[in-house]
Design a protein around this nucleic acid. Structure first.
Lengths: 234, 234
DNA sequence: CGCTGTTTCGATAAGCTATAGAAAGTCTCG
DNA sequence: CGAGACTTTCTATAGCTTATCGAAACAGCG
């Protein structure tokens, strides 16, 4: 029941394979991330993570009592998708460009994340008590997107659709498309992360704009917003 | 190396728990399907399937040498998504309505399928040699959708987008949305299969149509096509 | 030098997929 | 009607996984 488990460099029984460079916890997360990227979460075993980090299989459980806790720690380091939405939802200016920015940023993050969105979701669903933050983040992003869409409808920029359904469709498109970036299906073209993000935001905005002639303008204004918001926060 | 393994009613060692009703193979598929629907593929064990079908765990391996083979058999019984696309791609008439029909039918099938699309894909990817049909079907559906989109662009109904990317986005939206039907995220609204299918087809067509005012008309014509094509084939 | 706290190890339980070989029937043919 | 072949199910077990338990090996401190 020790409360340490944070830095830990010299204390404790020495490892069979030399000693650790830095914090074992961070080292495990780093090695696990690399393996998750290469093979996916389900296909990566605790033995492999242990071997990469230089310990025995059971020793990993001293730092993470369950395999999902590694994923959870990894998730907490990868925040920041919401920031753009939280910054832009209450902002002034055309709603269409703000929505484009939010959707594009979300797609970029989904593609850059070490883990497939659906793999995250699968684990989160099996351990709802530990992954409450995941679901809260998601529903807040959904709420913010719906709010921006509602603003756009009120201002006349966007068609009179149901904002909630439209937000669901927009996020679903991001999630569905990130898959084609991560795991290109045989026989189909491959896409870069930027291809995917632009395709997704373009498609959603084209489906919502009253006239698609406004799309190039929206895209240009969104690029400005992204640059401005990304610069101030990071 | 017996070549039987098809009907098999009375031969062989009797089961501990009474005898089978019909073909053991079919019975296993049926029970497994119910379990897959209830718990998903990965969370269903061979022991559970065996118990439901009235045999011991290892006896299932007489009929299916690997767990994935049950899924494969299940997939082969669930064909028929392509039929609409194959019927409508070479058809005459407005491309927009044909595309709407195809996308709507695909979404309905994804929602009605016993297994989540992504779970199928995950298993198919791990056994590419056994699931070649899955990838072939997918890329043919993609090809047909892109072709219809191209026809729509040529005829002036649709905007001048890249047909391949647009088809990828359209199918991705279907796949992403079916997830929200199967596994509603906590805190978000739930949708019926028809909500999802209409939302998906509406969104894609709205993003592609030159003017969204044509959408109600496209939807109406698509309903006619769906009724006609579905009736002749089934 | 012994005591306490920290970290790692080895051994092992329980559950999973899959295999091997014996067992228990039916079927066929002389 | 009886011997052998064939079909189907069984028991037992190997090898993998996640996770737990208690002992072992070190540092620091009085």
């Amino acid at each position: 029941m020790g409360a340490a488990r944070t830095a830990g460099a010299t204390a404790g029984r020495p490892r069979l394979s030399g000693s650790a460079d830095g914090s074992p916890r961070q080292e495990i997360i780093r090695e696990a991330t690399a393996l998750f990227i290469a093979k996916g979460y389900a296909e990566t075993t605790m033995s492999e993570i242990a071997r990469s980090a230089g310990l025995r299989q059971s020793s990993v459980y001293y730092w993470f009592a369950r395999k999902e806790h590694i994923l959870q720690a990894l998730l907490e380091e990868n925040r920041g998708s919401l920031q753009m939405a939280q910054a832009l939802e209450p902002a002034s200016g055309p709603a269409a460009a703000r929505l484009y920015s939010v959707l594009h940023a979300d797609a970029v993050q989904l593609c850059a994340s070490p883990l497939d969105f659906y793999e995250f979701e699968r684990v989160a669903r099996s351990q709802p008590q530990n992954f409450g933050a995941f679901f809260e983040d998601y529903s807040e992003l959904h709420r913010l997107a719906a709010s921006i869409i509602r603003q756009g409808i009120d201002s006349g920029e966007l068609r009179g659709v149901d904002p909630e359904s439209a937000a669901t469709a927009a996020l679903s498109l991001n999630e569905g498309l990130q898959r084609h970036y991560r795991q290109p299906l045989p026989g189909l073209r491959t896409y870069t992360a930027d291809d995917i993000s632009t395709l997704s935001a373009d498609t959603t905005l084209a489906s919502l704009l009253r006239t698609t002639e406004a799309l190039p303008d929206v895209r240009a204004r969104a690029a400005e917003l992204t640059a401005a918001t990304g610069a101030t926060d990071s």
